[in-house]
Design a binder for these strands. Structure first.
Lengths: 110, 110
DNA sequence: CCAAAGGTTCAACGATTGTTGTACCGTTGA
DNA sequence: TCAACGGTACAACAATCGTTGAACCTTTGG
C-alpha cells in the first residue's frame, strides 16, 4: 500500500484541530480508537457502517490534523490515535473531547 | 434592538460546539472575550477588524452553540462568554481551548 | 420629527465540506 | 499468473460556510 501523508502536529493550527474534531462521524471514529486502541480500518468501517471512500476521506482529515496514524500491515491497514503527540501539541484538548463524546453519543442516539 | 436566539447549552451537541470553535475568527473573538469579559460589539469589531455583517454572523454561530450571550444596552450591544454554562455542559473543553488559543495566535501571526 | 449610528437580515458569491460511486493500485492467496 | 480484497484517488453532487454589500429596524441625539 502506498505511503500516505501524516501531518506534523507542530504544523497543525488549533482551528484545524478543532475542525478535525467537529464532525459527528469523526468523533465516533476517535471515540472508537480511544476505546480500542489500534484498530483495523475494515473493522472501523464495519462497526460504524461507513462506505470505503468516506472512511478513507475522514481518515485523511484526521491524519492531516495530526490525530491519527495509519499503520501498514501488508494488505490490512490499521489506525491508531496519536494521543501523546496530540496532547503535547494541544494540552488537555483531546482529553476534554474524549470525556464529552460519550454523553454526546447517547444524546445523538436518543 | 430585537431579541435574538440563544441556544440552551443542553441542546448543543459536541460536534456543534466543536464547529463553533473551529474558525480562526471565532477563536479570536472567544479569546478576546475571555480576556476582557463583557465587551461592546463595536469594540470587538474595531479590534478584530471585521465587517458588521460578518461580526453578526459569527456572533450568531457562537450564540447557537451556547458560547456567547448578547446583552442589550439600548443602542449599544455587548457580548460575553457563557463560560460557566458551557463548562457545565462540556467540562474542561473551553478551558483546554482557551489554553491553546494563545500559542496558536502567535503561530498565525508569524 | 429626522438624521445618524449600532446591529441584524437577506441575497449573492466563491470556496469548502460530506457523501457516493467508480476507477485505480498494491497485496495476498490459489 | 491472476482473480479477489483492502484502501486510496478522482469526479461529481448537494449542502454548508465565510465573506461582502445593501436594505432594514431600533435606539439615540439634535
Amino acid at each position: 500500500m502506498r505511503d500516505v501523508f501524516h501531518a506534523d502536529p507542530a504544523d497543525v493550527t488549533l482551528a484545524a484541530a478543532m475542525h478535525g474534531l467537529s464532525d459527528p462521524l469523526r468523533l465516533r471514529i476517535v471515540a472508537l480508537l480511544a476505546r480500542n486502541g489500534e484498530t483495523e480500518c475494515s473493522e472501523i468501517r464495519r462497526e460504524l457502517d461507513i462506505s470505503k471512500s468516506n472512511t478513507s476521506h475522514h481518515f485523511r482529515i484526521l491524519r492531516e490534523c495530526g490525530l491519527l496514524r495509519r499503520i501498514n500491515h501488508g494488505q490490512q491497514q490499521s489506525a491508531r490515535l496519536r494521543a501523546d503527540e496530540f496532547e503535547a501539541r494541544f494540552p488537555g484538548l483531546l482529553g476534554a473531547v474524549l470525556d464529552n463524546i460519550e454523553s454526546d453519543q447517547q444524546q445523538a442516539g436518543a
